[in-house]
Structures are given as C-alpha cells and as structure tokens.
Design a protein around this nucleic acid. Structure first.
Length: 483
RNA sequence: GCUCCCAUCGUCUAGUGGUUUAGGACGCUUGGUUCUCAUCCAAGUAACACCGGUUCAAAUCCGGUUGGGAGCGCCA
C-alpha cells in the first residue's frame, strides 16, 4: 500500500537511443511523476564486447533532450561484485550448476526438439554430475523439467499471464562467476534497487517467467503475494510498429531519437506524440497536451494492449502545432542552431526575425527552413518555372520589365501601394476588356523570380524583406533567363 | 516448429451490454479565401476480421476459427 514507487529504464549501450526505448522510458517516467516516485536509469553494459561509451552518451543525451531526467543512476559494469555474490550463493545452494555443453551440442539439441515439435529448451544432464574442471562452461539455473507448476504473474495492462515451468529449460544465468547474463543481472538489480514496477515492452513478456524463477531461487520471493510473484509488479507496453506492423526497425525509417532531433522535431512534440502511442487519457479528446497535463492524466490502466504503428504524418502535424505555438524568440534560437548545417543562416538573426510570420505556418519541422533559403541567397530554378498559363515567353518578359519599373519607381517600403500598382498592372495587361484581370500573370513570374519556388509566400512580402536593390537584381536575372 | 500476446476507419484512437444511423484526430478528396504554396474555414471519404454461444438486447461477455505480432542466445 504505502510501498514507494520506483521504476527504471534499462537500456543497453549497443546502439543509439531507439524510439522504442525512449517510449518505454517516457511511460516509466510518466508513471513515476504521476505517483511522485523515483525514476532510475540503469545502463546494462554487462556485454563489454558490444557496449560502447558513445552509445551511452547518445542515450543519456536523448533522454535529457526529451526532458526525462532520472533520479538515480546505475551502471551494471560497476556492480559486478554484487552479481558475483549472488551467483556464488546459487552455486553453493545447488540451485545453479556448471554446464559444459558446446554450442554445437546445444544447437543440435534444439534442432531435434523443433523437428519433434517440442518446445526448444536445454535440459542439462550436467546438473547431476560434479564438475571436474571449470574451463569453457557456463552457469545455468536448475529448472525442474518435470514440474507441473505454472508460473503466473499479473500484468497491470494485460491481466494474468502464465507459462509452464517445465518448458523453460535450464536457463543460462552467467558466463562464469564474475560475468552475469541479462536475465540474472536484471533480477538482482531490480531487487537490490527496490524497483516496485517493471514497465517495459511486450517483447519482454517471455523473459518474465525466467526472471521470476531466478528471483525465487534467489529468495526474493514475496510470500504475501497470492500469485507467488516476486517483488516487482509488471506492466508490458504495446510495441511501436512500422508501417507493415512489425516491430519498428531501421528499415521503417528513422529509429533513433537523435535523428528526430537533427531533423528539427521539437522534444515537446515528440513527447506528446510518443505519449499518445499506446495510451489515451481518460475523458479527454485533446490531441495536443503538455507535459504537466499528461503527467496528471497518466495511468497504466488505460495503456492499450495492441501495438501502435508509428505514423510520421501525425508526428509532423503535432510538430507543426508546437512550432506555431513557439514564441518568435524561441523559434529564432532553434533555427539558428541549424545554421551549422545551413551556412547562409549564420548571423542572419534580423532577417530570420522578419520572415518568421511567413515561415512559421509553413514549417512542419525546423529543417523545413531549407525551403526558405531564397531569403538569404539567390534562388536557382528552371526558366520554365517563370511561365504562367498559356502566355508566351515574351509576355512574361514584358510583364517582368514593367514590374521592375514599378519597383524602381516606388520601392518596397510601402507594400500596400506596391500591391495596388501590381493589381493595376494586371488590369492594364488584360487582352479581353470584358474579362477579369489575370493577376497571376503579374504575381506568378514576380514571385518565382524572387523565390525560385513553385510555392512560396506572397511576392510583395518577400520583396519587403529582400529590399529594393536585391529585388531588381533578381528580376533582372529572371529576364535574362527568358532571353 | 514451440510458447506467449493482440484484433474498431489507411493510421492513432473513443467506446467497459441498450443514449451508436459506431464519435474524434491525422491522412486523403472536394469547395471557400488565393498568383502559388501554407494557414484558416466548410463538407466528404472510410472500420467493429469471421463463425458460434450467452442475453429481451453485443463492437462491448464467453468459446472457436482466421489473421497479425513477439519471444525461443554463452545479446540485451
């Protein structure tokens, strides 16, 4: 009842922070914040071969970027003596033993079992023998292959789940006394750091009975629990899926949080989007919800059971909503960060400030600034883009000449006046006196000559930012193209 | 092959036996504004996998079928 809430995220530094790991971290964090509990970060680096400090850094940076700060930090590689103590205990108690079967033998055994339609598992006869030497073996937990026991546990999201003990086989728990394997290290750490709730992806459901068995052997069993459950409670989250509904992976697109950061997604938007993947607040139809409100509403009980497909369109939409809600100062700061990639943005704070109202509603992500680089440098485009409807090259050229005259005459300081004059020009240019003026004949080539884009903000607005001299220069370039 | 998990529009989801001609959001389509794009506004599109059972009544409960997914390492 009064048990303190303690949860953990336990990534292994064998790759960058994966979106699935980040979502698991997020749900753990939300649960902890909602319950005023403790969020623990544990780096699972027992496999020294595959672990790399650069990945650890990426994971830490990614979690911080998302705003998922941890309260406690552990590294398994720094806790090896603890595992050793428990491995020794199991060995001494006769609950674990050395297995000297070769990988080939194990493979062969599994092959035969599959061929005979049996559950693949290693039933080791070495547990009945006294080991002669300890070279080349590994340590396994002694599991009764004749047991009729069912290993049951309650999952907060899915209800009761059960497995048959005898189908598990003698699980590997350590490479040697000093080197624990995943399932063993998890159980020891969760116990030692008093984790109250294990919240992780549903791909860990099959690991749960193994960990319960290890926990029981270690004496971590909680006798007050009618299900005979070891200490933590479990909640298995639905997976994040790719468009083909299989587990999200590289081939589905960007999977690391770093990539989303670099593409110009805002951490708040990612937070919001990921929170709503596999969870919906009760009694709310809001899709845009800030951190505090999500924390307030968060409850494992309304986490969904089925996997959720990661949908970039929706993320883009949410991100665009967050961009629109940014203050000008915040947006400028974020855009300037991108100037390392787009050199022309360097020291252009004033220009960026001027174009903000134009680009804010057109950006889904910050990297979309690349569509607006024409504000900072000459646009490149094909001559044909200047053409409007069925008009001839010569018509467009003449129009541009007249627009140039207008700009030369009245400048760009009075946009409303310029617009009026451009409208007048359109009226003057119409061939059929009864038809409505075709403003496109004037505005389209003018706009293209300034932006080089088939879609962009209003040419007069662009002209105001560029200034008279630059505008005339660009119109001249366009006219040259047409000649 | 074995074990486990899951099943409402293309996608994210609301819905916990009657208020549902199944609601919202994204996407898409159309219209309005407009030189274009975007924004904004309006409208449209589209789903309870199937078969049984329980019940006066089932998307909602039960069973089965089918389908999808995950796990099956001396990785984590």
């Amino acid at each position: 009842m009064s048990k303190e809430i303690r949860v953990r995220i336990a990534p292994s530094p064998t790759g960058n922070l994966h979106i699935g790991t980040a979502r698991t971290a997020l749900f753990n964090w939300l649960f902890a914040k909602h319950k005023k509990g403790t969020f623990v970060l544990r780096i699972e680096d027992t496999d020294l071969e595959r672990s790399d400090p650069k990945y650890e850094k990426d994971i830490l940076d990614g979690l911080k970027w998302l705003g998922l700060e941890w309260d406690e930090f552990y590294k398994q590689s720094e806790r090896m003596d603890i595992y050793e103590k428990y491995i020794q205990k199991l060995l001494n108690d006769g609950k674990a033993f050395w297995c000297y079967h070769t990988k080939e033998e194990l493979e062969q055994e599994q092959k035969e079992q599959m061929a005979n339609k049996l559950a693949p598992r290693h039933i080791c006869d070495h547990k009945y023998k006294i080991p002669q030497n300890k070279e080349g073996g590994i340590i396994r937990l002694n599991v009764d292959e004749k047991s009729d026991e069912k290993i049951k546990f309650n999952d907060i999201i899915r209800g009761e789940i059960e497995f048959e003990e005898k189908l598990l086989g003698d699980l590997s728990i350590a490479k040697n006394e000093k080197t624990p394997l995943y399932n063993f290290a998890v159980v020891v750490d969760d116990h030692e750091t008093k984790i109250s709730h294990v919240i992780r992806g549903e791909d860990h459901i099959p690991n749960t009975p193994k960990q319960i068995l290890i926990g029981k052997a270690l004496g971590f069993h909680n006798p007050s629990n009618p299900l005979g459950q070891v200490m933590p409670e479990y909640a298995h989250l639905p997976l994040i899926l790719g468009s083909d509904k299989s587990k999200m992976s590289k081939r589905h697109g960007a999977t690391s949080i770093t990539e989303y950061n670099e593409e110009g997604y805002l951490p708040e938007a990612m937070f919001n989007y990921m929170a709503f993947l596999g969870w919906t607040p009760k009694d709310s139809e809001k899709e845009i919800m800030d951190k505090d409100e999500i924390i307030k509403n968060f409850d494992l009980k309304n986490v969904h059971k089925s996997g959720a497909v990661f949908n970039l369109d929706k993320l883009n939409w949410i991100n665009s909503q967050y961009i629109k809600n940014l203050s000008d100062e915040e947006l400028i700061t974020k855009i300037l960060v991108l100037s390392s990639r787009y050199q022309v943005l360097s020291n252009k704070e004033n220009t960026i400030k001027k174009i903000l109202p134009m680009i804010k509603e057109r950006m889904e992500k910050l990297s979309d600034i690349k569509e607006f680089l024409f504000f900072f440098k000459d646009p490149e485009y094909e001559k044909d883009l200047l053409m409007w409807k069925k008009y001839e090259t010569i018509d467009i050229q003449k129009t541009l000449e007249m627009v140039k005259e207008l700009v030369t005459e009245i400048g760009v300081g009075a946009p409303d006046t310029l617009r009026e004059k451009l409208d007048d020009l359109a009226s003057k240019l119409k061939t059929d006196p009864d038809a409505k003026p075709d403003r496109g004949l004037v505005y389209w080539p003018f706009r293209v000559s300034l932006s080089g884009q088939k879609g962009s903000p209003d040419p007069v607005d662009i002209a105001v930012v560029l200034g008279q001299e630059e505008v005339i220069k660009r119109i001249n370039k366009a006219i040259q193209k047409l000649k």
